[in-house]
Amino acid sequence: MKNIIYNIGYFIKEGRIIFKLNFWSNILSLFSIGLILFVLSLVISGWRISTEVLSLIQNEAEINIYTDETIDEKSLKTVIERINSIDGILESRIVQKEEAYDRMEKVLGEDAKVLEYFDDNPFHFFIEARIDIEKIESINKEIKLIPNVQYVRDNREILIRLRSITRGFKILGTFFIAAVGISTIVIISHIIRQGIYNNKDEINTLRLLGASEVFIALPFLMVGLVLTVGGGIIAAVLLYTILAQLYAYIAGPLPFIPLPSFPIMVKSLISIILYISLFLGIIGSMIGLSSSK
């Protein structure tokens, strides 16, 4: 260990020499890895943003349950109790017909005058329940079994579509992580193997002088890390630019899409990309080193 610490400066210097030995090819690799990681980071961003949007919308997910108009107090109480006992119902309350009227007035705004044509309040009281969107199917099924329930209204079309978008990103993201991971590892391990081959006489001399395998490997590991983490930084810069544009674009004309906060999002995405590149660099270099023994 002290052997390693004493020689950090040497490893960096050696790493630089090894890098310079194939300077242009290494620069090209650096940028290709940067682009590959950038594509990966786009997919991960899509996944993260849609998950965030979904969970923000999900918190608003609710259904409206309508009963017989003529239901008596006691039966209504039973209905509410049964609704609350269903798995996935977060909370429920009764919306009286007056409140329903007020809400519609708000929704209609200018056009609320139309309501004046009714002699009576045309609305019906209903039960409003916040739900866990993941369980919407089973909730629906169970509510329909409750006596006196006439009709259930939900906005699940939208929610289900959003959910499938998120799942798509998740599948795509997993696939991309695998594909990008494999190609980065292949590139890095190949570069390391090439470097070791180009330096095989020097490496042999170090072995004869009693150098440990770690001592011999570290400069190559550094080159691998420079290439992947460097690529990660390139990807992060590109991603930052693109996300900033995207946020400016969406936040203006489409203010109702509840995007997660920009700084938090960017920070977490950039650290994910850097961690992934560090991880791939270590794995790729290790494979390159061990395959050239």
Binding site: N3, T205, L206, L209
Partner: peptide, 24 residues
């Protein structure tokens, strides 16, 4: 000889000690 090419004489001599972990 088995010296490391591209390095100076003193770097070669030092390398022989580095691999042993001799204090800087």
């Amino acid at each position: 000889f088995k010296l490391i090419p591209g390095r100076t004489a003193i770097d070669n001599v030092i390398l022989g000690m580095r691999v042993l972990g001799m204090p800087r």
